[in-house]
Amino acid sequence: MIDTLEKPDVQLTQEEKQLKRVLIICSKGKLEDVYAALVMANGALMEGIEAKMFFTFFGLEAITKKGADHLHTATVGNPAFMPAMPTLLAGLPGFEAFASFMMKKEMDKLDMPHVTEFFEMIEAGGGEIFACKLAADMFHLKKEDMLPQVKDIITVGDMYALAAGDRTQIIFI
C-alpha cells in the first residue's frame, strides 16, 4: 500500500510535446465558421503542426469555385450579431449581403485573406483539404466544381485515417 502511494507520478515527469497534427472538420458554411476553420488550420501550420481539413455538409460551400469567395454571415438567428436589431428587419432583402460586406471590409483591415487565397496559403504550407463524399453526393457536387486545392473527395473512414497517430486532435466546427 505504502509502495503504491510512494510511486512517483510518471505523468509529471513526462516532457510536454507539441501537437503533431490537427484535423479540422468544417460542417458549416457561414463566413465566420469557415474563417474559424481556416485560421485554425493556417495557425497550426504556422506553428509547425500538420493540418488537414475536411469539409462536409454546408461547409462544402466554402470549397466550391462558385461559393468560396461569396460566403455570408447570418443576420437572422444570430443573437450575438447586432443584439438590438429586430429579427424582422435583419431579415429584409439585402440586409445579410450588406452585413457580410461590412464584415469582409473589417477583415480586410486586419489583412485577412479572402477564402480562396487562404486555401492557397494553407496548401503552400503543406496543409491538405478534403471534401466529404456523402455530402458531395447529396449536393450533386463533383471534384471539378471545387477549388483546385481540394485534394480528394473521401469517405468518413478515410477522414479518420487522416487523424491517425498520437498527438493528433480533431476539431469540429
Binding site: L45, M46, E47, G48, E120, G125, G126
Partner: peptide
C-alpha cells in the same frame, strides 16, 4: 512565395 518560405524555414516559418 509562401511555399518557398515554408521550405526555407521548416517547422513554423515566421517564428
Amino acid at each position: 512565395d509562401i511555399k518557398k518560405f515554408y521550405e526555407l524555414f521548416p517547422g513554423g516559418p515566421l517564428k
